[in-house]
Design a protein around this nucleic acid. Structure first.
Lengths: 332, 332
DNA sequence: CTGAAAGCGCTAACAC
DNA sequence: GTGTTAGCGCTTTCAG
């Protein structure tokens, strides 16, 4: 920057003004400075700039997601990227893999990079450790799962209601023996979805039968085996509610293996890629991931831009799309 | 940091030494400093640190990928995340969406953040603009597609050979009328795959028939329509080679709509999620995305860590997996 | 083994 | 409209 000032015959400050698009600079000087900068291949150093800048902002946000190679996380990432780019922000992302201590580790890593905001799709854990950070000025939002022992903006899906919708749908087709296959029950979303399942059964006055419930954690292969055992047992379910995408895929594979895919109804929660190309096509309850991301970005940036009001919680509705597998009637 | 020094009764420099794990500090002081830091919720400011640090490194790399919400990009991202995390590096990612000018824009954005290295999955364009940046010390690597007018490490797949394998496979099942459906032909990988298709036909002494070739860009729906027209025409192909994942999905949909999915053979290039659950299961040529990412990270970090030898190009082999759709014989 | 002074590249505050 | 000086939070250099 000093060299640019020298070459263009101006001062440091003028160069700074030019690159910050301060309007009060002589247009002729602007041209001279830009020419000199181009000649020297000068690129402003944003990190140095934010050091002295009065608000100390780095125009950087951090995303802590479950696993950025899975579609839920990577679509969220993309939505944030678009939103951030508009505003001149840049995005750091890291994967938590359901490990609670990694969350803290990454939060402090991101804070050491002085991110302006943080979005967390948390593993279950206590979030009170964030209090001093927020006091120090960092903005925090939660997505997919709410914070624990800590107040912050959050964006969630209708996990419980969507699950109840799915099970109600199966009930409306005459099913009475409906299995629940789900993720490990310490995960918030898994709890909520299980709770929706139970609530639907209760409304229909069907007692909960634990032999119809399979919950993780287990390997994909184990899960397939277990579902296969369940659907071929003497007291098999006539319908399955699979409460997560990988679990739904396991259910599809198990039904295929048992040649029951057209006999036993199946509704899954979450998107399955090309689920409409399967035979039968898979009836799904899906989250509006883009809407979740948009809303979450909106809430975070409103805080970064100065909003300091009360904590907000947004609930994004899920949608049931009937495509075949969920409309199979029980055989008597 | 000054406050931490004051509270622990030491100097700035000692605090710095403690956080940089310099071994020559009195253990008792280390404890005192850490205690003071915890009390004040002090987190070192890495960005400030790299400003004065002798190598000027920020321990940050930037990834410019096609679209981080698609699996190819997000799996690469994940591989880099893991590799970078081991080394204390953090990763910026952005999506290019096949827009060449966005590439330059993002490169200079990342450079203004002073990334130590850059990995680019480029849209077709001239890369000589990177020369001054490399001279200035930034390390650059290419993935998926090679640089143009510029020398840098790159990691590619056997696009041409893998495509030839696919078409050879179809030929070995007796097909003579094999269609090529592909991406827009200005994309490097699309060119290579088309070239593999032509080369296989040539080896089999089958003349290239342009009515059997469909290339983008077009919308998913248009593509489906066009494939449907092709397979139901009087002179329809008995087999299809689809040279990219979205294109393969379009081909599957088109064949379904025409009820020809068990009559016309299909091999796709690239992974299709749950492709094995379709009926017929889809025969695919797949890239080893993880290996590509690993190798690419290895090359980039070797340069960041001082390697300054000649430019390297790594070719990662693709694999053909027969699963049904590619083993349908032509009906005469 | 520890500390004081200088300075990384930039912007803030204030003068001109 | 433009330049000067100080200082952001840290690491370097070098003296003790």
């Amino acid at each position: 920057m000093r060299e640019v000032a020298a070459l263009s015959g101006t001062s440091l400050k003028t160069v700074s003004r030019v690159f910050n698009e301060v309007s009060t600079v002589d247009p002729e000087l602007v041209v001279r400075v830009k020419k000199a900068a181009a000649k020297l291949h000068y690129t402003p150093n944003m990190t140095a700039g934010s050091l002295r800048r009065i608000d100390g902002r780095t125009r950087t946000i951090g995303l802590l997601l479950e696993d950025i190679s899975n579609p839920f996380s990577s679509v969220l990432h993309r939505v944030f990227e678009n939103y951030a780019r508009e505003l001149g922000f840049i995005v750091f992302v890291a994967s938590l893999d359901e490990e609670a201590d990694r969350e803290k580790e990454l939060v402090s890593l991101f804070i050491s990079r002085r991110v302006d905001g943080l979005i967390i799709a948390p593993s279950t854990s206590d979030h009170s450790y964030l209090k001093p950070e927020v006091k120090a000025g960092i903005k925090v939002g939660f997505i997919d799962r709410p914070p624990i022992n800590f107040a912050a903006d959050s964006v969630l899906s209708t996990n419980k209601e969507g699950s109840k919708d799915a099970v109600d749908h199966l009930l409306s087709f005459g099913h009475k023996r409906i299995a629940y296959i789900g993720d490990q029950p310490d995960i918030y979303t898994a709890q909520q979805r299980y709770s929706g399942y139970k609530s639907a059964l209760q409304s229909a006055k069907i007692p909960l039968n634990q032999s119809m419930v399979i919950q993780g954690p287990r390997s994909h292969e184990d899960l397939i085996d277990q579902i296969k055992k369940l659907v071929t047992s003497s007291n098999a379910p006539t319908a399955i509610f699979a409460s997560q995408n990988l679990v739904t895929v396991a259910a599809i594979r198990a039904l295929r293996d048992a040649r029951l895919e057209k006999k036993v109804a199946l509704i899954g929660f979450d998107e399955i890629p090309v689920g409409d190309l399967l035979d039968p096509a898979i009836t799904l309850v899906t989250q509006d991931i883009r809407a979740m991301g948009e809303k979450s970005a909106e809430l975070l940036f409103s805080r970064i831009n100065g909003y300091d009001g009360k904590v907000r919680q947004e609930i994004i509705p899920t949608t049931l799309t009937a495509r075949g597998s969920g409309e199979i009637r029980p055989k008597f």
